[in-house]
Write a protein that binds this DNA or RNA. Sequence first.
DNA 1: GCAATTTGACCCCC
DNA 2: GGGGGTCAAATTGC
Length: 360
Amino acid sequence: MDGGWSFEQKTLISELIQGMEFAKQLRGHLTSAPSTEARDVLMQGILSSYEKALLILQWGGPMPQSQPVVAVSGIPESPLSVNGSPQSDEFEKGIGDHQQNRDISKKRKLMPKWTDQVRISSENGLEGPHDDGYSWRKYGQKDILGATYPRSYYRCTYRNTQNCWATKQVQRSDEDPTVFEITYRGTHTCGNSGPSVPSPASSEKQEQKQINHQSNHHQHLQQQQSQEMLSKFRAGLRVDTNNLDNNETAYRPFSFPSASVGLLQIEHCNSSTLTNVNSSLFGSFSSTFFSPSTPESCYFSMHQANDLGQAHNMQHLESDHTEIISTNTSSTNSPIMDLEFSLDQVGIDPNFPFDTSFLP
DNA sequence: GCAATTTGACCCCC
DNA sequence: GGGGGTCAAATTGC
């Protein structure tokens, strides 16, 4: 029925095909020079598809039945649970116990962490800087030393109900108030939503409101500057993103020619699985990321700051983690070593710059 | 009434 | 000891 394809493989193929379709459409758009919004949508689709595909490759490691979960993600909060049992009994029962809390704290430190820099776009204005499609609940806010704007802390709404320990921190950039630095920690294990399923009640919109409100109190001048920029946005101007490349970290520029704004910086990654990701994979795909539910154009490049100092390239999209993890949960073997399928078989244009050198 | 947000306090780590 | 992160009671909004 499925020709022997695993679920991951089919998903991967589907994502690649979809990405290719988007690319073809984009090519047509580029030649006919339509609106930039259409391009953005297409680009977003392309990158989303590749992102998912890559993560399938990346996260599609051996299942817990065959290998420790640690090798899958290094994310203790994975619903797979450390011992692979379907329930995290200890985890839930132990809340409140000091030792358990300490363990949780340690585990949190081991969570993969990456930063997504999102710029407010002309389309979105102040309404929503970055709706990643997940349902977040704000649980704290802090004034950070040396930072103009406070940092907001979010966790997954389904933390208690589905033991989803994904969190994120949102902080408005001092240098550019139109840029939000969103630091994700952990991956979604709830599977309740994802980038492709925009959350209608995004808490970030409220956070945006709040941040804007706070900016009124914090820095009047900066706010003026921000509003000035926003008014420019609204006037149809796009902020030149070239200066984003001048960030303290060396970013690899995104190779898609028409992409414009956005950054994703992976700051920390402890997952041992990531070492399996061949850098050539990303070299060929370029380091691209679009938050699929973020219509604003955004381009990102990737920076690796691994504790081990190794060149572990990785692309993260929490939603995709959710997908991958849930996928892994329902499967027994990783597809990653069985990717010897023909691209022609799935209709992928051989001319498309798809480097398969990473495949075994 | 319920869910989300706010905010002061607490905890942990450097 | 201080800063960052989280908790949880109070508050707010729907």
